[in-house]
Each structure stands twice: as structure tokens, then as C-alpha cells.
Design a binder for these strands. Structure first.
Lengths: 147, 147
DNA sequence: CTCTAAATGAAAGTTACTTTTATTTATAGA
DNA sequence: TCTATAAATAAAAGTAACTTTCATTTAGAG
């Protein structure tokens, strides 16, 4: 992702365009795997020289709240993040071995939202759909990374 | 849920049938809301007299790993748990206001598993599908509980 | 250029679990 | 029923993933 694309995202969110935010967006955009906050921290420190871990947490949280990046749920209680260039609404297949993320076809949950609204008068605000497994490469014996 | 049903679940999992495990299963079975570990702890303490919090965590984790109970994901980083008497594979609509959980129709993700296997040779091990929103009662102005 | 609100760093704090170890208990087998 | 033993539990201490606070810096509007 070009810097200008990151800047455009930040302007759309009415966030100031700062070097830290740009680096974090670029860092995630060049990864095919989901990353923990600490992993993002160590990567962007290489390029920025110094950045505080609370800043990383704050920026990741902003981006996740704005749905620019996706939270990945693992059974440990760490949060992981992934930025997908595909901006249509869709979901992910997450490899538990190498942490690579693949796109899935668009989800069919609009019907579910309508069902809930009609059945009980409720309102859907968000949903989580994440498929976990082991990707093709890892199934064929490539070693993954530690969770 | 009767005690004997809880005992049957534990025997199926090859876990010893202990008063703590039975109380935790019964506690969750009589709730229409998802509960945190601390909430489970305070409820079962009323009936057991005393139980350690690590025991609660261990038992909840065992039951969640065995898919007897469902983990609920919120944006805070606490884990929540829900026991659904419906033992068919299905998913939940979670009210962010009152923490009540409603069943959804059976999910259509078998096709997704097949797609992944065919496309890349990967293997699906589990998935998370959770719909968040505000239930009918809460939309109509009933006050919920604090998250 | 200046001003102001937003962003950041550093340090300390919080909390949701987790580990460890000694003790107790469910239960399989005698 | 009794006993042995492996599993379960309690209590206390520990860990780690964030989070808060507050002083300083900086982006961006005017």
C-alpha cells in the first residue's frame, strides 16, 4: 500500500495523518499474516526508530473500531490484527499454523439480520465470522510459526 | 438442567463428576445470558459455600474446549460463556445491552469448508460465527446490564 | 506563523487470567 | 466395602496483555 492510500484512510476517519499511523497501516498492508500488537510494534520500530507500545495499541484499536483492520480471535487471549486490501464486506480463513489469512466469498448474513429484525424487533450491529484451520501449504508439511 | 444431565455430559467427556463441575453446568444452564468467569464464580459460591476462582476458570475452559459451552466475544478482552440446551450445531445472536443470547438457524458453512479444501488443500478445524446487536426488548427501552 | 486540539511517550497501574504446590476426593479395582 | 491412585481443588503468588495518566510534542486549521 502506498503512503497516500494510508493517508486517505486516515483523512476519511478524521484522524490526523501521522508517521506512526502511516507506518502501522503500511506494516499491516504488506503482511499476508495476522499480527499481534507486539509483532506490529517490533516491525514499525525498525523503520520509525522509536514508538511506544501504548501508541501501537491505540492506533490498532482505532483502526479496528473503524473496520479498516479486522480482529482475529485465537484461543489464547491475545488480540491479532489483519488488514485486507479487499474493501468489500467479506470474511477470512485463518491458518492456525502459519497465521496466513485468505479471503472468503462475501458472507450471506444479510438474511440473518432481517430474520432477527422481523422475529423479535432486534437490531444487528455487527458480526464475527472467522473460519479457522490449516492452510494448504501447512497441510503439505511446511512449518508454521508459533502461536 | 437436571444434575443427572450434567453428570452425563461429564462422563461423556471422561471428567470426574464433582460438585463444582455440576454446579457450574447447572448455573450456566439456568441462564439466558452469557456470563463472565467472575459472574459464574459469584453465582456458584452462593450454593457451594466456597470455590476457588482458578477452579472456575479451569472448568469453564474444559467445557468450552469440549464445545459443551460457547465462548462469546466482546470488544473488551474478557471471555464470556454460554450454555445452550440446543445441541445441534448452530450460532447465536448476542444482545450487547442485556447479554441475552438467542439461537440462530443452523449455519451454512459446510459449503465454505468444502470450498477451502478444494481451492487450496486446506482443512477447516473450527469457526466462529456470532451476531451482535440489541434485542427486541432492549430496543423497546428496557435497560440492560453493564458490559 | 500561531494556536489548539489531537497525538505521543514514559512510567506506573490494572486485571484477567495462570501457575505452582500441597491437599483432598472421585472412582476403578480388589 | 475398602484401598490405591490419578484427577481435582484451594490458596497464594505470578504473568502478561493491555490501559491509564499526565507531561510533552505535533498536525493542521486559520
Amino acid at each position: 500500500m502506498e503512503l497516500e492510500q494510508g493517508a486517505a484512510i486516515l483523512r476519511r476517519l478524521k484522524l490526523k495523518v501521522t508517521p506512526r499511523r502511516l507506518e502501522i497501516i503500511c506494516c499491516l498492508a504488506t503482511e499476508y499474516s495476522f499480527l499481534s500488537a507486539e509483532e506490529v510494534w517490533s516491525r514499525v520500530r525498525l523503520r520509525l526508530g522509536s514508538i511506544g507500545l501504548p501508541t501501537v495499541y491505540r492506533i490498532l484499536d482505532e483502526l479496528a473500531e473503524a473496520a479498516v483492520i479486522t480482529r482475529i480471535f485465537l484461543s489464547n487471549r491475545k488480540q491479532y490484527y489483519f488488514l485486507c486490501s479487499n474493501q468489500d464486506h467479506h470474511h477470512h480463513f485463518v491458518c492456525e499454523s502459519c497465521h496466513r489469512v485468505e479471503d472468503l466469498e462475501q458472507c450471506g448474513l444479510d438474511a440473518v439480520s432481517r430474520e432477527i429484525a422481523q422475529r423479535s424487533g432486534g437490531r444487528v450491529t455487527s458480526h464475527i465470522l472467522q473460519i479457522n484451520g490449516v492452510c494448504g501449504a501447512c497441510c503439505q508439511g511446511h512449518s508454521g510459526v508459533a502461536a
